[in-house]
Amino acid sequence: MIALLTRDLRLAIRAGGGFGLGLAFFLIVVVLVPFGVGPQSALLSTIAPGILWLGALLACLLSLDRILALDWEDGSLDLLATSPLPMEGIVSAKALAHWLTTGLPLVLAAPVLGILLNLPVAGFGWLVASLALGTPALSVIGTFGAALTVGLKRGGLLLSLLVLPLYVPTLIFGAEVARRGAEGMALTTPLALLAGITCGTIALLPFASAAVLRANLR
């Protein structure tokens, strides 16, 4: 499983692996927002936590179809399925690799983009905390979506349609933590719920993803 993880990381970093694409997308979305809503700093600082969360979510979505589709195309997925690795382990390793190459850079870049959107100083810590806690759930849920659509020719659009409704609870609690953090309000409840969602999805969803992937490989 570690072998699979390191291979995926290496593939992502090498040329054509798409590493950094999500990050660039995140930057562009955040830069475009003031053009859409106007440059008033008060308005921007109110919506900053939500925009940053939404931008991170969309950037995450962008790279989901690469999680499994590439391995499907070149036949590695068949070979992995007949290898000693359990399918649950394969999808978990894939989700972790996706988080390390997409989610983690987004978490690290978010404070910089927060400056662009005039995020209140108190909010930076909580923004990073909420993203760090929430993006793993996005990767795991996204892997489930990728497993559902892996055999399809034009699965990308369907993947978004399937995954976005599943992202709703994570987005709500994550953005709520970031917003309350920026406004200096109590945020233990949404933080605990966000952590609960992340832990729950990491613990349970790989079983669903593995079952789906097995059905797709038939």
Partner: peptide, 18 residues
Amino acid sequence: LCLVGSVFALLSRYAVNF
């Protein structure tokens, strides 16, 4: 998808309430 969706729909219901 229906099973997973049911769990997430329920979660969304509470999230939205919150």
